[in-house]
């Protein structure tokens, strides 16, 4: 349990948010040309990092907007928050 500083609403309790998993997984540009291996990679394989991870969150019980969080999964410390479409900060 931790606090999340929503870029639109400010600091709120984590229970107002919904985690959306790993960020920056790009949807394939040519889906029809993808092999089964590439589909598996896109759909199922995850980094699942112990350490600093880039992820998407949604302020489900607030503004309902999506944004990105850089979080250390080994201690739940949030390193950075940035809006959708913005460039991820370098570590």
């Amino acid at each position: 349990m931790f606090l999340i500083n929503c870029p639109y609403c400010g600091e709120r309790d984590q229970q107002e948010f919904k985690a959306g998993g790993e960020a920056h997984i790009e949807r394939p540009k040519q889906p029809t040309e993808l092999s089964d291996d590439e589909w598996a990679e896109y759909l199922f394989m995850r980094k699942n990092i112990k350490g600093v991870q880039f992820e998407r969150w949604n302020h489900a019980h607030g503004c309902r907007k999506w944004f990105n969080i850089v979080r250390d999964t080994s201690n739940d410390e949030i390193k950075a928050i940035y809006k959708m479409g913005e460039k991820p900060p370098s570590q």
Partner: peptide, 14 residues
């Protein structure tokens, strides 16, 4: 379970 990835062996109170 909580819905976010975490290795902290803790969870959310709610």
């Amino acid at each position: 379970t909580d819905d976010y990835v975490s290795y902290t062996q803790k969870g959310s109170h709610q």
